[in-house]
Computed example of a mutant assay.
Amino acid sequence: MTATHASDTTLRVLGTSDVAGIEISLADVVAVVEQAYDTLAAGRSDNPRKLTVKPEDGHSVAYAMLGRDGERGVVAVKTSYKHGLHEDRDKQHYYTTLTLYDDSTGLPVAMMDCGRIGALRTPAVSALLARELAAPGSRSALVIGTGTQGRLALPFLLTTMPHLERLMLFGTHPDGIRAVREQLHAHFPDREVEVVTDLRAAAGDSDIVLATAGPGTPASVDADWLKPAALSVLVGYGIAPSTLHRADRVIATSAAQMRVTGTDMVDAGGELRAVDAEFPEVLAGRAAGRTDPGQRIFAYNSGLVVTDIALGHRFAQLALAQGLGTAVPLWQ
């Protein structure tokens, strides 16, 4: 990055259109995210717990996340702000940015819109969770939700688990359903998705249930609906707290972040189920994921900023090599 990062007085800003035009394969995204987890598990990266602010009426939520990637020698800050949580999706406002600094030179790398980074990183993590935690011989997957995370969920699942045979989708937005189909055909033109309306029956037929829906979803898969050895992965909404509390084993990308962002999954007594293992440790072989083929597993995907940093840095490298972005004399 030393040839392309900003000076000590300017900052390279990469807007939505700059980031959108960069080509990267799903397999490359998975590899970058997996490496970020490996580096964190090795103790070479730092990923403090995110900070959260939310008004009493819950109309908005904001997060701030600081981290350091030891593999790339990059320090970064990510911010995320969503307004209109009680409104329909088209009336909500969402802004997320990532600012990267080269920790070897002390110079800024770039500030970028982090929307596409998150849209790729999160389903890549879910796909890695599925690869590591799904029961042996898993052949079916159900995705709940057709928003940003739901639209790439199936292509990423097929990237890490190409043997999946039956792909199901539960959604309530026609445009979202169409977008899911388009993304699947763009990456896997020979594969089809089955849109389901009987959620209980679909959940009972699924080896993997991936909940990516927004807070207004009518979906709420109960533990009783799941197969005995099913894997349920929570990204957004769509599965009931019982899937967590009645699981045989609970894996989280971060136990600390689950305590912050997983409060909607508490039981009737207001308690959140303890985490059995964190996913970076599972990937590194330092902790067990599934310890028995018949276990019902719950996995919580809250996202770690080190994965945003790794993927964002890769995008910045590609963008700056192409001369994209605008140099802003921020510190002059």
Rank of each mutant, 00 (worst) to 15 (best):
S17F: 14
P162G: 10
L311W: 03
L199S: 00
E281S: 12
K91G: 10
D103W: 06
R273F: 09
Q322F: 05
D28R: 13
G285R: 10
A36H: 01
I177D: 14
D175W: 09
M265N: 15
L98A: 02
A316L: 14
A247T: 03
L142R: 00
G238W: 00
A134G: 08
A219W: 05
D46S: 13
D205R: 06
D28F: 13
S104E: 11
T96H: 04
A229Q: 13
G15F: 05
D175F: 02
F170H: 06
G106T: 11
E132F: 11
H163Q: 15
A36Q: 03
S25K: 14
S232I: 14
D46M: 10
H83E: 11
A179P: 01
E182P: 10
A186S: 15
T263P: 00
L11S: 01
R131T: 04
E23V: 05
A64L: 13
A255H: 08
R178F: 12
V13S: 07
S206C: 10
V180M: 03
V250W: 09
A247W: 00
T96K: 07
S25F: 11
D103N: 13
G236E: 06
D207T: 07
E165S: 10
T197P: 06
R296Y: 10
A42S: 12
I117E: 00
P174D: 15
D267E: 12
H93N: 05
M111D: 06
H187A: 07
R121A: 12
T197A: 15
A64H: 00
T197C: 04
P108E: 04
G269K: 13
I22G: 02
A110F: 00
A268F: 11
L167S: 01
A256D: 11
V13R: 07
V250L: 05
T9V: 13
K91P: 00
A268V: 14
S17N: 12
E165H: 06
V109M: 02
